[in-house]
Design a protein around this nucleic acid. Structure first.
Lengths: 169, 169
DNA sequence: TTGGAATGTCAACAAGGCTGACATAAAATA
DNA sequence: TATTTTATGTCAGCCTTGTTGACATTCCAA
């Protein structure tokens, strides 16, 4: 499991030494931190955390989504998400409407204030992402995306794309 | 800040719509989760958390590193790290030796048991990384690494490379 | 040699994971 | 139709791991 490997792929030989893989692992760790730093700074000022950011982000992506949908995307328990949502609703950033066809469900929407914060957060994140993309160049961006997609859980990926296509009104 | 942009870089035109950037952001989120999933599963079985993993990982990379060095890498407070280290030391996975030249410092090393766990964790992570690399292909891997390096904090990156080169005995 | 800076430890608090218990609505079944 | 089962979401309480504050030890510079 731990010995070195080489894989032939496409036109060039891909050496995957443990050392190189370890470098990739560390790059992932450091990059993720850079990636979350800017929004985190904004959030601590507002007394919110990364959990609030995630909730806001995905409610924005799929307005009208239910708590249950959100759970499967975020990969946390509903109790944990609930605490975060409760706060966001109380603060008037998220609106929760009882489902029309199924009255057990709560459909979630960003209020204007919520949308404003979402924009502030994602702008900050986009600035960093854009500058990384520019520094790395367009072919690198393609590769970046391909590796990330291969790295994430395939079921979740499918589920997420389904969710984004579905209507939530 | 939020309008669409295009950047000329290398030989092709790089369109960076907000939509594409948002996709990159989400890919990063999902991929990071995939990336941490396997070690997390192992760790919960052992009653450790991701914090323990990080500590073990970087002690393994730079044996003999001090608590202070580790802090700057991990980006947490020393009090937080200390709790994690205390447990690892108590459990016999990490050894802490008083510095010879500066007796305030504690130099950290993995014990055999610690090294064994490190190997178990990084093997799991490497398996995922390797299969992502293979699926994406070698050019993609190049790009992946370039984008990640551009995304992480530059000071930290420099600091880290310094640390890895320095001797810690 | 003494006062300040640096390193690491201990204590207590907060955010956000988790499980458990529960209310309500829908669906399945007797 | 009445009743049991299932699904969705809420509330309460615990644990990990972040945080800041107080402190002991060691080193170094005035």
């Amino acid at each position: 499991m731990s010995e070195n490997r080489a894989a032939y792929h496409g036109e060039s030989l891909l050496f995957l030494t443990d050392e190189q893989l370890r470098h990739g692992i560390e790059a992932m760790f450091f990059a993720y931190r850079g990636f979350t730093d800017d929004p985190d700074r904004i959030l601590t000022g507002l007394d919110y955390g990364r959990a609030h950011h995630r909730a806001i982000h995905f409610v924005n992506c799929a307005p009208g989504t239910t708590v249950n949908n959100l759970l499967s995307i975020l990969g946390v328990t509903k109790q944990s998400l609930n605490r975060v949502l409760r706060r966001l609703i109380a603060d008037g950033l998220v609106e929760s409407r009882v489902g029309q066809t199924d009255r057990r469900e709560r459909h979630l929407y960003l209020t204007d204030a919520g949308a404003a914060l979402e924009r502030q957060l994602s702008d900050a994140q986009r600035v960093r992402m854009r500058s990384a993309y520019r520094a790395a160049g367009p072919e690198a961006v393609q590769g970046f995306r391909r590796v990330l997609e291969a790295m994430m859980d395939q079921d979740l990926q499918r589920h997420y794309f389904d969710l984004r296509e579905a209507r939530h009104d």
